[in-house]
């Protein structure tokens, strides 16, 4: 018998009350939010509870929402998978402009680099991560390139004339 979404919701609400909320289906994946303080416990519960048994961390990534209010500037998205029941679940947590959330390395070894990557791209600090340093970008880099305000193109380039690309300086960063 497949794991019902209502079941997951019920068990989580029983355990965590109102700190797990905004349940809903995003297409075929059951999605909900957790507050950053509880995130570690929620994921631990999802993993270790015998009925839920979400034992595989499929994906972990950050999202930047500069337009949102102060408490929802960043999101960290965790995709968990239960291979036995073949059910996926997506946990989100929203962070403020000074983003910090607990690491889940102790639960999933694969979270190590994924968290490093998220820090590298968004500057989201994973508290308790033993090796939170640059992974894909250069060590010398100081900004976080996946934040929306960071321009995609190399600012130092000299070989491309903006006029021939239909761009002017003013719209370059917003394009």
């Amino acid at each position: 018998m497949a794991l019902e979404t209502a079941n997951i919701q019920e068990r989580l609400s029983q355990k965590f009350g109102s700190s797990v909320f905004a349940f809903g289906m995003q297409r075929d994946i059951f999605t909900f939010e957790a507050s950053p303080e509880n995130l570690h416990e929620v994921i631990q519960f999802l993993k270790e509870d015998e009925e839920l048994n979400f034992h595989f961390l499929t994906d972990l990534c950050g999202v930047h929402y500069p337009e949102n209010d102060d408490d929802h500037q960043f999101a960290v998205v965790y995709l968990l998978h239960n291979w036995v029941e073949n059910t996926r679940v997506c946990v989100k947590t929203y962070l403020n402009a000074n983003p910090e959330v607990d690491t889940i390395i102790d639960l999933f070894l694969s979270a190590n680099w994924m968290e490093r990557e998220t820090w590298d791209f968004y500057g989201i600090v994973f508290k308790g991560h033993p090796q939170l340093k640059r992974i894909l970008n250069m060590d010398e880099m100081i900004s976080f390139p996946m934040r929306k305000e960071f321009p995609m193109e190399d600012s130092g380039r000299t070989d491309k004339d903006d006029r021939f690309f239909g761009r002017t300086v003013s719209n370059k960063s917003t394009l």
């Binding site: 894909l136 970008n137 250069m138 995609m152 190399d154 380039r157 070989d159 491309k160």
Partner: peptide, 14 residues
Amino acid sequence: CSGGVFDTYSVLQG
């Protein structure tokens, strides 16, 4: 030769 389709902050343009 030129950076190709990767006109980004992390790629050397040629």
